[in-house]
Design a protein around this nucleic acid. Sequence first.
RNA 1: GCCGCCGUAGCUCAGUGGUAGAGCACCCGGCUGUUAACCGGGCGGUCGUCGGUUCGAUCCCGACCAGCGGCGCCA
Length: 429
Amino acid sequence: MIKIGDILRGGYEGKEVSIRGWVYRCRSSGKITFTVVRDSSGIIQCISKEGEIPDDLYEQIKGLTIESSLELTGTVSKDTRGVTGYEIKVKGGKIYQRNESFPISRDKSEEFLLDIRHLWLRSREFTAVLKIRATAFNAFSEFFNREGFYNVQGPMMVSAQTEGGSTLFEVPFFDQKAYLTQSSQFYLEALIFSLEKVYTIAPSFRAEKSRTRRHLTEYWHAEGEVAWIGNEEMMQIEERMIEYIVSAVLRDNAEDLALIGRNVEPLKKVKAPFPRMKYRELIEKAQSWGLNMKYMDDLGADEERAITVHFDKPVFVTHYPQELKAFYHRPDPESPDEILCHDLLAPEGCGEIIGGGERIWELEILEERMRSMNIDPKAYSWYLDLRRYGSVPHSGFGLGLDRLIWWVCGLDSIRDAIPFPRTIRRITP
RNA sequence: GCCGCCGUAGCUCAGUGGUAGAGCACCCGGCUGUUAACCGGGCGGUCGUCGGUUCGAUCCCGACCAGCGGCGCCA
């Protein structure tokens, strides 16, 4: 039993092989039947001729429906008439299931494909995206393992929010209320005191009623936290990490990128270092680019899009005014109204994929910030403890992995970057 | 939370104030080189739900349900 992809790489001409898979296309002209078979590695056309195989098998093959599962044995030949340049002349085989009419045909709407996502995953396009996604997840872990980070896990059920706003999913927790986590950041911060450099890949949940093509209510959050480093060193790690992941995809998924029609030229330019721009400078630039922005405006979706077209690499935006960001970001000692944070905006109009920065590590400053933002310190008592016992400077980041896949694959919607998207209106399949 | 859009066959869509049609899928038949094959025939619908207007509503009006897009918020 071999993979179709192996046949397509050559070397099997004239040899007898067996493949297993699903019917991708089926055409018959009486005494000859063409069955295009799909497996996880590719598609190949198989030829069956009446009289050359047992009659009952020929009748079964002739009557197959799309997505029926089967096993075929036959001789490989190189033939330009086959869709992928090779063909198998069938000698024998076994049908596992001849299914009824497959619901997906050539016309399909966005909504329908979401309803039957569990079946649409079989499409060649989605298969390609899923392979790229696997590469990206692996490359992320690989990068941090090589950098001496420890892979850690925080809880998914928590008692307090990380970010501002009431965007938590509430879940019953015995006699109490618990929430699904928005971020593992606080737990990673606790873990640096033993491990110093940590990362995690975990889902995060946001009950935001977002209706956009770049939001999920459940998304895969890749986070890192590092003791003893500041905002700039954190960005240096991140830009190498992004370069590492993109290079891995370009190296391992060239065929998949081609299949989904992704232009790889912009991806080839993703090499560290990335440009950095302070929020203040960005506003000035934005005004010269004709964008209507003033200081203290947050970057909206339109602004992010308009900004990224002026760069051919991802760009870091740093030093936001403290009012625009969460309470834990450390003010710049040289300019206390600005904080030592960064967002990474992906090019080609994609926008924010990373948020990170240096954390406040002095207890008094953190308490002062919480007071000024009307946050109850009691809810964060254990988090404040981290600043009571051997506190150290540290920085961290959170990367939206689904957004990364969305950008790298050049997809219309983030929903097509994850197999089973959870959005405000969709909990099945 | 705000704004906009959609709902007719399994799918993609036409259409009409007098209870519906095409293409694809599927089934049957034909065809020994097809490439989303082709040719002939067939099956297939409470026209999203409820209410209103009307002699009569899939069509007009209202509410609801479901979904999609944009903003804000974020990753």
